[in-house]
Design a protein around this nucleic acid. Sequence first.
DNA 1: CAGGATATATCGGCTTGCGATATATCGCAA
DNA 2: TTGCGATATATCGCAAGCCGATATATCCTG
Lengths: 122, 122
Amino acid sequence: MLTLKPDHSELVVLAVLAEAPSYGYAISKAVAARSEGHFRLGPSSLYPMLTKLEKQGLVDTDWEEVKADTADPDAEGRKRKWYRLSAKGQKRLAQHIEAYHRARSILDTFVAPAAEGRGATQ
Amino acid sequence: MLTLKPDHSELVVLAVLAEAPSYGYAISKAVAARSEGHFRLGPSSLYPMLTKLEKQGLVDTDWEEVKADTADPDAEGRKRKWYRLSAKGQKRLAQHIEAYHRARSILDTFVAPAAEGRGATQ
DNA sequence: CAGGATATATCGGCTTGCGATATATCGCAA
DNA sequence: TTGCGATATATCGCAAGCCGATATATCCTG
Protein backbone atom coordinates (compact mmCIF):
# COMPACT_ATOMS: atom_id res chain seq x y z
CA MET A 1 0.00 0.00 0.00
CA LEU A 2 1.54 3.24 -1.15
CA THR A 3 1.19 6.46 0.68
CA LEU A 4 -0.02 9.40 -1.32
CA LYS A 5 2.81 11.51 0.07
CA PRO A 6 6.06 9.93 -1.12
CA ASP A 7 9.10 11.37 0.60
CA HIS A 8 10.62 13.00 -2.45
CA SER A 9 13.22 14.95 -0.49
CA GLU A 10 14.86 11.81 0.79
CA LEU A 11 14.76 10.22 -2.65
CA VAL A 12 16.47 13.23 -4.19
CA VAL A 13 19.21 13.42 -1.57
CA LEU A 14 19.95 9.71 -1.77
CA ALA A 15 20.02 9.92 -5.57
CA VAL A 16 22.51 12.79 -5.47
CA LEU A 17 24.72 10.89 -3.02
CA ALA A 18 24.52 7.77 -5.19
CA GLU A 19 26.53 9.52 -7.88
CA ALA A 20 29.23 10.82 -5.58
CA PRO A 21 29.81 11.62 -1.92
CA SER A 22 28.96 15.19 -1.09
CA TYR A 23 28.29 17.61 1.76
CA GLY A 24 25.27 19.60 2.81
CA TYR A 25 25.83 22.88 1.11
CA ALA A 26 26.92 21.22 -2.15
CA ILE A 27 23.85 18.96 -2.10
CA SER A 28 21.61 21.97 -1.68
CA LYS A 29 23.25 23.70 -4.65
CA ALA A 30 23.23 20.53 -6.74
CA VAL A 31 19.50 20.03 -6.25
CA ALA A 32 18.75 23.62 -7.21
CA ALA A 33 21.05 23.45 -10.24
CA ARG A 34 19.89 20.10 -11.59
CA SER A 35 16.25 21.04 -11.24
CA GLU A 36 16.92 24.40 -12.87
CA GLY A 37 15.75 26.17 -9.75
CA HIS A 38 12.45 24.32 -9.53
CA PHE A 39 13.40 22.27 -6.49
CA ARG A 40 14.71 23.95 -3.40
CA LEU A 41 16.24 22.21 -0.42
CA GLY A 42 17.04 24.84 2.19
CA PRO A 43 19.15 24.36 5.31
CA SER A 44 16.16 23.84 7.57
CA SER A 45 14.93 20.98 5.41
CA LEU A 46 18.24 19.47 4.48
CA TYR A 47 20.25 19.27 7.70
CA PRO A 48 17.59 17.60 9.84
CA MET A 49 17.18 15.09 7.02
CA LEU A 50 20.90 14.36 6.76
CA THR A 51 21.00 13.84 10.52
CA LYS A 52 18.12 11.42 10.21
CA LEU A 53 19.84 9.54 7.37
CA GLU A 54 22.98 9.30 9.47
CA LYS A 55 21.11 7.96 12.49
CA GLN A 56 19.46 5.33 10.32
CA GLY A 57 22.81 4.23 8.97
CA LEU A 58 21.95 5.10 5.39
CA VAL A 59 24.97 7.36 5.06
CA ASP A 60 28.45 7.41 6.54
CA THR A 61 30.04 10.71 7.46
CA ASP A 62 33.44 12.30 7.71
CA TRP A 63 34.55 15.74 8.75
CA GLU A 64 36.92 17.52 6.42
CA GLU A 65 39.07 20.34 7.63
CA VAL A 66 39.02 22.95 4.88
CA LYS A 67 42.44 24.58 5.13
CA ALA A 68 42.46 28.33 5.13
CA ASP A 69 45.00 30.34 3.13
CA THR A 70 46.95 31.08 6.29
CA ALA A 71 50.54 30.74 7.40
CA ASP A 72 49.40 29.67 10.86
CA PRO A 73 49.27 25.85 10.94
CA ASP A 74 47.21 25.82 14.14
CA ALA A 75 44.43 27.95 12.65
CA GLU A 76 40.93 26.50 12.93
CA GLY A 77 39.63 26.08 9.42
CA ARG A 78 36.09 25.79 8.15
CA LYS A 79 34.61 22.32 8.56
CA ARG A 80 32.83 20.31 5.93
CA LYS A 81 30.80 17.23 6.74
CA TRP A 82 30.92 14.67 3.94
CA TYR A 83 28.14 12.19 3.40
CA ARG A 84 28.56 8.99 1.46
CA LEU A 85 25.91 6.40 0.74
CA SER A 86 26.21 3.17 2.73
CA ALA A 87 25.15 -0.24 1.46
CA LYS A 88 21.99 0.16 3.50
CA GLY A 89 21.44 3.55 1.89
CA GLN A 90 21.76 2.06 -1.56
CA LYS A 91 19.08 -0.48 -0.75
CA ARG A 92 16.84 2.26 0.57
CA LEU A 93 17.39 4.28 -2.59
CA ALA A 94 16.43 1.30 -4.71
CA GLN A 95 13.23 0.95 -2.67
CA HIS A 96 12.51 4.65 -3.09
CA ILE A 97 12.99 4.42 -6.84
CA GLU A 98 10.75 1.39 -7.10
CA ALA A 99 8.05 3.10 -5.03
CA TYR A 100 8.40 6.25 -7.11
CA HIS A 101 7.98 4.39 -10.37
CA ARG A 102 4.95 2.56 -9.07
CA ALA A 103 3.38 5.76 -7.73
CA ARG A 104 4.17 7.55 -10.98
CA SER A 105 2.49 4.97 -13.19
CA ILE A 106 -0.59 4.91 -11.00
CA LEU A 107 -0.83 8.68 -10.79
CA ASP A 108 -0.53 8.82 -14.56
CA THR A 109 -3.69 6.76 -14.90
CA PHE A 110 -5.53 9.32 -12.79
CA VAL A 111 -4.02 12.33 -14.49
CA ALA A 112 -4.11 11.22 -18.10
CA PRO A 113 -7.91 11.09 -18.60
CA ALA A 114 -8.35 14.33 -16.69
CA ALA A 115 -5.88 16.08 -18.98
CA GLU A 116 -7.63 14.97 -22.16
CA GLY A 117 -9.89 17.31 -24.07
CA ARG A 118 -8.36 20.31 -22.37
CA GLY A 119 -5.13 20.70 -24.27
CA ALA A 120 -3.21 19.86 -21.14
CA THR A 121 -1.54 16.87 -22.75
CA GLN A 122 2.00 16.99 -21.31
CA MET B 1 9.59 26.93 -7.19
CA LEU B 2 8.11 23.50 -6.65
CA THR B 3 7.69 21.92 -3.32
CA LEU B 4 9.08 18.45 -2.92
CA LYS B 5 5.84 17.34 -1.35
CA PRO B 6 3.09 17.68 -3.96
CA ASP B 7 -0.38 17.19 -2.56
CA HIS B 8 -1.18 14.02 -4.43
CA SER B 9 -4.36 13.29 -2.51
CA GLU B 10 -6.01 16.45 -3.71
CA LEU B 11 -4.85 15.81 -7.27
CA VAL B 12 -6.33 12.34 -7.21
CA VAL B 13 -9.68 13.42 -5.79
CA LEU B 14 -10.03 16.29 -8.24
CA ALA B 15 -9.09 13.98 -11.10
CA VAL B 16 -11.76 11.47 -10.08
CA LEU B 17 -14.37 14.22 -9.82
CA ALA B 18 -13.32 15.57 -13.22
CA GLU B 19 -14.69 12.45 -14.86
CA ALA B 20 -18.01 12.44 -13.06
CA PRO B 21 -19.61 13.80 -9.90
CA SER B 22 -19.34 11.40 -7.02
CA TYR B 23 -19.65 11.08 -3.24
CA GLY B 24 -17.18 10.27 -0.48
CA TYR B 25 -17.58 6.56 -0.13
CA ALA B 26 -17.59 6.04 -3.90
CA ILE B 27 -14.47 8.18 -4.32
CA SER B 28 -12.69 6.12 -1.69
CA LYS B 29 -13.61 2.90 -3.48
CA ALA B 30 -12.78 4.32 -6.91
CA VAL B 31 -9.28 5.34 -5.80
CA ALA B 32 -8.60 1.91 -4.33
CA ALA B 33 -9.99 0.15 -7.41
CA ARG B 34 -8.24 2.25 -10.05
CA SER B 35 -4.89 1.97 -8.29
CA GLU B 36 -5.37 -1.77 -7.83
CA GLY B 37 -5.22 -1.38 -4.09
CA HIS B 38 -1.97 0.57 -4.07
CA PHE B 39 -3.54 3.88 -3.10
CA ARG B 40 -5.74 4.13 -0.08
CA LEU B 41 -7.89 7.10 0.84
CA GLY B 42 -9.57 6.34 4.14
CA PRO B 43 -12.40 8.30 5.75
CA SER B 44 -10.07 10.25 8.03
CA SER B 45 -8.07 11.49 5.06
CA LEU B 46 -10.89 11.91 2.61
CA TYR B 47 -13.64 13.75 4.48
CA PRO B 48 -11.50 16.54 5.91
CA MET B 49 -10.18 17.08 2.40
CA LEU B 50 -13.61 17.19 0.81
CA THR B 51 -14.67 19.73 3.43
CA LYS B 52 -11.63 21.81 2.58
CA LEU B 53 -12.35 21.60 -1.15
CA GLU B 54 -15.91 22.72 -0.48
CA LYS B 55 -14.79 25.67 1.62
CA GLN B 56 -12.41 26.74 -1.12
CA GLY B 57 -15.18 26.59 -3.69
CA LEU B 58 -13.46 23.94 -5.77
CA VAL B 59 -16.47 21.65 -5.56
CA ASP B 60 -20.21 22.15 -5.32
CA THR B 61 -22.26 19.83 -3.15
CA ASP B 62 -25.74 18.34 -2.99
CA TRP B 63 -27.38 16.00 -0.53
CA GLU B 64 -29.17 13.03 -1.98
CA GLU B 65 -31.81 11.20 -0.04
CA VAL B 66 -31.21 7.53 -0.73
CA LYS B 67 -34.70 5.99 -0.58
CA ALA B 68 -35.05 2.90 1.51
CA ASP B 69 -37.12 -0.09 0.39
CA THR B 70 -39.92 0.94 2.70
CA ALA B 71 -43.63 1.54 2.36
CA ASP B 72 -43.44 4.47 4.75
CA PRO B 73 -42.99 7.65 2.70
CA ASP B 74 -41.88 9.65 5.78
CA ALA B 75 -39.02 7.28 6.60
CA GLU B 76 -35.62 8.91 7.02
CA GLY B 77 -33.34 7.41 4.42
CA ARG B 78 -29.59 7.28 4.22
CA LYS B 79 -27.97 10.48 3.01
CA ARG B 80 -25.37 10.82 0.31
CA LYS B 81 -23.37 13.97 -0.24
CA TRP B 82 -22.50 14.50 -3.90
CA TYR B 83 -19.48 16.47 -4.98
CA ARG B 84 -19.08 17.98 -8.41
CA LEU B 85 -16.14 19.94 -9.73
CA SER B 86 -16.69 23.69 -10.07
CA ALA B 87 -15.03 25.86 -12.72
CA LYS B 88 -12.58 26.94 -10.06
CA GLY B 89 -11.92 23.30 -9.24
CA GLN B 90 -11.17 22.54 -12.89
CA LYS B 91 -8.59 25.30 -12.97
CA ARG B 92 -7.03 23.99 -9.80
CA LEU B 93 -6.89 20.50 -11.27
CA ALA B 94 -5.14 21.85 -14.37
CA GLN B 95 -2.58 23.54 -12.12
CA HIS B 96 -2.09 20.31 -10.17
CA ILE B 97 -1.54 18.37 -13.37
CA GLU B 98 0.94 20.89 -14.70
CA ALA B 99 2.86 20.87 -11.41
CA TYR B 100 2.80 17.09 -11.37
CA HIS B 101 4.20 16.80 -14.87
CA ARG B 102 6.94 19.27 -14.08
CA ALA B 103 7.84 17.53 -10.84
CA ARG B 104 7.78 14.18 -12.58
CA SER B 105 10.19 15.18 -15.34
CA ILE B 106 12.61 16.71 -12.85
CA LEU B 107 12.45 13.76 -10.48
CA ASP B 108 13.14 11.49 -13.44
CA THR B 109 16.44 13.24 -14.04
CA PHE B 110 17.44 12.50 -10.46
CA VAL B 111 16.19 8.94 -10.48
CA ALA B 112 17.35 7.82 -13.91
CA PRO B 113 21.12 7.95 -13.36
CA ALA B 114 20.76 6.41 -9.92
CA ALA B 115 18.85 3.49 -11.40
CA GLU B 116 21.47 2.74 -14.03
CA GLY B 117 23.91 -0.11 -13.63
CA ARG B 118 21.68 -1.77 -11.10
CA GLY B 119 19.07 -3.40 -13.29
CA ALA B 120 16.46 -1.05 -11.93
CA THR B 121 15.68 0.35 -15.34
CA GLN B 122 11.95 0.74 -15.08
C1' DC C 1 -32.23 -10.29 13.55
C1' DA C 2 -27.38 -10.28 13.22
C1' DG C 3 -23.55 -8.89 10.65
C1' DG C 4 -21.21 -6.87 6.88
C1' DA C 5 -21.38 -3.20 3.60
C1' DT C 6 -22.73 1.51 2.88
C1' DA C 7 -22.14 6.33 4.33
C1' DT C 8 -20.36 10.40 6.75
C1' DA C 9 -17.67 12.57 10.27
C1' DT C 10 -14.31 14.02 14.26
C1' DC C 11 -10.28 13.71 17.42
C1' DG C 12 -5.61 13.42 18.60
C1' DG C 13 -1.11 12.40 17.49
C1' DC C 14 2.81 11.82 14.47
C1' DT C 15 5.68 13.32 10.76
C1' DT C 16 7.37 16.57 7.56
C1' DG C 17 8.61 20.75 5.51
C1' DC C 18 10.08 25.29 6.12
C1' DG C 19 10.67 30.32 7.54
C1' DA C 20 13.32 32.51 10.81
C1' DT C 21 17.26 32.61 13.19
C1' DA C 22 22.10 31.74 14.85
C1' DT C 23 27.06 31.13 14.34
C1' DA C 24 31.43 31.11 12.09
C1' DT C 25 34.74 31.06 8.24
C1' DC C 26 36.45 32.16 3.55
C1' DG C 27 37.60 35.09 -0.52
C1' DC C 28 37.39 39.14 -2.99
C1' DA C 29 36.99 43.92 -3.91
C1' DA C 30 36.89 48.61 -2.53
C1' DT D 1 42.02 46.38 5.98
C1' DT D 2 37.68 46.03 6.32
C1' DG D 3 33.41 44.78 5.11
C1' DC D 4 30.27 41.99 2.51
C1' DG D 5 28.57 38.09 -0.04
C1' DA D 6 29.27 33.34 -0.35
C1' DT D 7 30.34 29.15 2.03
C1' DA D 8 28.99 25.94 5.72
C1' DT D 9 26.32 23.77 9.43
C1' DA D 10 22.64 23.71 12.69
C1' DT D 11 18.25 24.44 15.80
C1' DC D 12 13.47 26.14 17.04
C1' DG D 13 8.81 26.29 16.54
C1' DC D 14 4.85 26.64 13.63
C1' DA D 15 1.68 24.89 10.13
C1' DA D 16 -0.11 21.38 7.28
C1' DG D 17 -1.10 16.82 6.04
C1' DC D 18 -1.97 11.99 6.81
C1' DC D 19 -4.06 8.41 9.36
C1' DG D 20 -5.51 5.06 13.20
C1' DA D 21 -9.11 4.91 16.24
C1' DT D 22 -13.51 5.92 17.10
C1' DA D 23 -18.51 7.20 16.60
C1' DT D 24 -23.06 7.02 14.50
C1' DA D 25 -26.62 5.46 11.57
C1' DT D 26 -28.73 3.07 7.63
C1' DC D 27 -29.14 -0.60 4.15
C1' DC D 28 -29.19 -5.38 2.50
C1' DT D 29 -28.65 -10.31 2.83
C1' DG D 30 -28.77 -14.67 4.96
